[in-house]
């Protein structure tokens, strides 16, 4: 795997001693969709801004597209959608695309044809000649994404691309992301919408209070946490749990008295069967048996809860009214 982004030990200390990044390592491979998760104020946007040279890191080793971080020439091949963007309101969306295309060094002819293509892609052709000031939030977001693609980038960095976009629009964006991947581009995105990341990301990282807590494919992260779940018709008691435990020696098994689920930590359905027999022998009604896989949300909440010290101050510092209060 050749890394498109490969940085180690990124630190960022804002003025007034806000330690937003505290030594972040990150590897993003070519051609993958990489999702960065984290609670509000974790430092996700800060990391992206460091990569995009919008702010300078206090400490940073590593490369992006083979160039040192901070090297402007790497940016010719990078598309970026900032978090709280505010593109010139006096321009029409076609003008916005052409303007930023020119700023990225795209020649006039390519610029004009590509702007129209991208307007098609983000489904904005109809309002292409309206001024941005008249757009809704979701429409601006679409233009922002199109803007990030104007220079035919190898790497696309999107800071909360689905911010303010309706469910249909989100689906469209997911399709765009997959399409970008299909075209061989690398996509790096920040998002709070965990279910969305789950659907498109090849790899994710979870950042809490300026540090990477988890990094890997969703399978890797959920490994060892998946298993089977038996749902019973009525609440179970201590004895029932013990009986099912006894039936499957060697398989970790968890359940709580008074609830009606028992979870077995194995991926082998065969191994769970004796437990069903044991339960049936005790005349427990079985409603369902299914494979259980923790969602990204479970992982996320777990990661945050494992470092509660980290999550709180970050969340408090995010008060400035700037940050949304989603998930």
């Amino acid at each position: 795997m050749s890394a498109v982004i490969d940085v180690q030990g990124v630190e960022k200390m804002y003025r007034r001693k806000v330690h937003a990044l505290r030594g972040v390592d990150l590897q993003v491979g070519a051609g993958e969709i990489f999702g960065l998760l984290g609670p509000n104020g974790a430092g996700k946007s800060t990391l992206v801004k460091v990569l995009m040279t919008v702010i300078s890191a206090t400490k940073c080793k590593g490369t992006m597209l083979g160039k040192k971080i901070g090297d402007k020439s790497a940016l010719t091949q990078v598309g970026y959608l900032p978090e709280h963007h505010n593109f010139p309101k006096y321009l029409t969306s076609r003008q916005v695309l052409r303007h930023f295309g020119a700023m990225s060094g795209v020649d006039r002819k390519t610029r004009n044809t590509r702007a129209d293509e991208l307007l098609e892609v983000v489904d904005m052709t109809d309002s292409a000649s309206h001024k941005l000031g008249t757009y809704s939030k979701g429409m601006r977001q679409r233009i922002g994404i199109a803007q990030a693609l104007m220079n035919d980038p190898k790497l696309v960095v999107l800071d909360e691309p689905t911010d303010g976009v309706d469910p249909i629009g989100r689906k469209d964006i997911r399709e765009i992301l997959l399409r970008l991947k299909g075209e061989g581009r690398t996509v790096f995105l920040n998002s709070h919408l965990l279910s969305e990341l789950e659907m498109v990301c090849d790899r994710v990282a979870i950042m809490v209070h300026g540090l990477m807590r988890q990094q890997g494919t969703i399978d890797e992260l959920t490994q060892g946490r998946s298993g089977f779940r038996i749902k019973t018709g009525s609440a179970i008691d201590e004895q029932t749990i013990d009986a099912s435990k006894a039936a499957v020696p060697g398989v970790e098994c968890a359940g709580r008295p008074g609830e009606n689920t028992i979870v077995f930590k194995t991926n082998d359905a065969q191994a769970v069967q004796p437990a069903i027999d044991a339960l049936r022998a005790r005349s427990v009604v079985i409603e369902s048996l299914g494979a259980h896989r923790p969602s990204l949300e479970d992982l996320f909440i777990k990661a945050v809860n494992e470092h509660p010290d980290g999550a709180r101050p970050g969340a408090q510092k995010a008060k400035k009214g700037k940050r949304g209060a989603r998930s």
Binding site: V54, L75, T76, F100, M103, S104
Partner: peptide, 15 residues
């Protein structure tokens, strides 16, 4: 230099 306007400009290949 207002927030939201400067970021896309700074992320372009121009010193």
């Amino acid at each position: 230099v207002s927030g939201g306007t400067i970021e896309p400009i700074l992320s372009k290949p121009i010193g």
